[in-house]
Design a protein around this nucleic acid. Structure first.
Length: 547
DNA sequence: TCCCCTCTCACTTTTGAATCGC
DNA sequence: AGCGATTCAAAAGTGAGAGGGG
């Protein structure tokens, strides 16, 4: 398999689409379209001129809905997914493995795009690993402040993105609610779904334009449960086998199974502890899993999403679930979700938004340490009621001094956008009334197509004029941990000594503004209202009946 | 008592600076 | 002087496991 070796986040050599690349995972692949692929549901027509007669291929690919994304190392992801992917989260931040890498095609080579990832709750359950499988253990804890990880190359031209694999391997996950590094904050023992967003950042579509659009790609096999230590030995084994950094655990002496591995791939090297774990697991798994819920996986679920936008999920087909856990979901499929921003300058005075906007004007702890808005508050956000509602966002940005967020200042040097941004988090699928009963883990619904109209965000300019204290609409340059260590607490908590240089705000480039707008759109992606529109359905038997 | 989290450890890979040779 | 290859040390990432807290 392909390893990350030699592939830097921004410079990894392009690999021609091959087996390692999720075949057919890009939408509308002319060669081999897969049924699993959801076609873009909404034309981003406003983004680019529709190709007219005589337009060349490049011109014909200008619209954002033509962008196709293939998940790299899809087979590896599938392996993990079938076992029930777990991702370690630590206070200091932990990378994802497998890392999120995609091959993008169909972009306009000359148009600039911003690629970013967010990770949203897959449902509103908390899980526990019991009897060698994941089971719902209650209702989810309040969502963390949503953060986005913007690819450090952003913004870059379509040619750049298409020339090589786009790797998000440096994305880190943390359970530290006060994380100052810009890592994506997650709750342990919760299920999440990463989403890739491609935001058009062309000058003409930067903030201020009516036509900025983006599309969202979701690969269901990349969903995972966040943990602070691995629960499922199969995942541990897969990580050790495939992650080069974990080579040290592939066996160290003749007493383990290294010899066995040399003799046959059928017996991968596992540690003694894993063997112990496996012994226990095998005993436990001897009990047949006859959960009636499995049959419910066949049900089609329809979710209403954001006021009229619909996501349609085809639930996983019934299958014999290995030991576990994440029942293998439908073959991956690309969730495609195209949005077009509208120029409906409708302002809502959102309580939660106001709370951020009206934050004290000094940047610092208030930004870094502000507790996430109460879950209810997020849920109640009126933005969820309307597709044209401004949404809140805050960002961390990359290493450069540029700050996004605001008014269109022209081309500063391309900001190093390896930034993480904050948005409020919305569950990816549905909110359902979850009983506290322990019920077998429900698979993440697989297919959906959704269209969501993205409101224009006319308030950003106003925010730009705000003092630095309104952190939640600003972009901070992301500090590496070492940087923060070196700089000391002041770097992390600028308020203590004033704003360090790295956190200085500058007017953002229009590209960042586009991203910022995107953040707005995403941050309020769930309200109580909209959540209630969802058909309950992910966690409970009742929910699976889909009416 | 159990479950989950934090911290430390030993091990690995990755990265980038320094050095060398052409 | 410039460039590329090699070397080496520091940085960073990994899971294991002990211990602590609720």
């Amino acid at each position: 398999m392909l390893q990350d070796k030699g592939l830097s986040e921004s410079e990894e050599a392009f690999r021609a689409p091959g087996p390692a690349l999720g075949e057919g995972s890009s939408a509308n692949t002319a060669n081999a379209p897969e049924p699993a692929l959801a076609a873009p549901s909404l034309s981003g027509a406003a983004l680019g001129s529709p190709p007219g007669p005589g337009t060349d291929v490049a011109a014909a690919e200008q619209t954002i809905e033509n962008i196709k994304v293939g998940l790299h190392e899809k087979e590896l992801w599938k392996k993990f997914h079938e076992a029930g992917t777990e991702m370690i989260i630590t206070k200091a931040g932990r990378r994802m493995f497998p890392s999120y890498k995609v091959k993008v095609t169909g972009m306009n080579p000359k148009t600039k795009y911003i690629l970013l990832i967010d990770i949203v709750p897959a449902d509103d359950h908390r899980y526990k690993f019991c009897d060698n499988k994941w089971m719902v253990a209650g209702k989810a804890e309040p969502a963390m402040p949503g953060r986005l990880y913007v690819h450090p190359d952003s913004p870059a031209t379509g040619a750049h993105w298409m020339r090589q694999l786009v790797s998000f391997q440096k994305l880190k996950l943390t359970n530290n609610h006060l994380d100052p590094f810009g890592h994506i904050i997650l709750n342990s023992m919760h299920k999440y779904q990463p989403r890739l967003h491609i935001v058009k950042a062309d000058e003409n579509n930067a903030f201020g334009s009516k036509n900025t659009a983006f599309c969202t790609h979701v690969f269901p096999e990349t969903s995972f449960i966040s943990v602070t230590s691995y629960q499922n030995h199969k995942i541990t084994q897969l990580k050790i086998e495939n992650n080069p950094f974990a080579k040290g655990f592939r066996g160290s002496d003749d007493s383990d199974l290294r010899v066995a591995r040399l003799q046959s791939k059928e017996y991968p090297v596992i540690s003694k502890s894993i063997m112990r774990q496996r012994l226990v697991s095998s005993q436990l798994s001897a009990k047949p899993d006859v959960s009636p819920l499995h049959s419910a996986h066949q049900a089609l679920q329809h979710y209403q999403y954001e006021n009229g936008a619909h996501m349609q999920f085809a639930a996983a087909e019934p299958q014999d679930l290995p030991l576990n856990t994440f029942p293998p979901q439908r073959d991956s499929s690309l969730f495609y979700h195209c949005l077009k921003r509208r120029d409906s300058a409708r302002h809502l005075d959102l309580p939660c938004k106001r709370s951020y906007l009206e934050a004290p004007s000094s940047v610092g702890e208030d930004h870094y340490f502000r507790s996430p808005p109460p879950y209810d508050q997020q849920m109640l956000s009126p933005s969820y009621c309307s597709e044209v509602t401004p949404r809140e966002a805050c960002m961390y940005s990359g290493s450069g001094p540029e700050i996004a967020g605001v008014s269109g200042v022209e081309d500063l040097p391309p900001p190093p956008l390896s930034c993480n941004m904050w948005t409020s988090v919305s569950p990816y699928t549905s909110y359902s009334v979850q009983t506290m009963e322990t019920v077998p883990y429900q698979p993440f619904p697989t297919h959906f197509t959704a269209t969501t109209m993205m409101p224009r965000l006319p308030t950003i300019s106003a925010q730009s004029s705000q003092p630095p204290g309104n952190a939640h609409f600003s972009v901070y340059n992301q500090l590496s941990q070492s940087q923060v260590r070196e700089r000391g607490p002041a770097a992390s908590f600028p308020r203590e000594r004033g704003l360090p240089a790295v956190c200085e705000r500058k007017p953002p480039s229009p590209h960042l503004s586009a991203a910022n707008e995107f953040l707005y759109s995403q941050s309020f992606s769930l309200s109580r209202e909209s959540s209630l529109q969802y058909h309950s359905g992910v966690g409970t038997v009742e929910n699976w009946t889909d009416g």
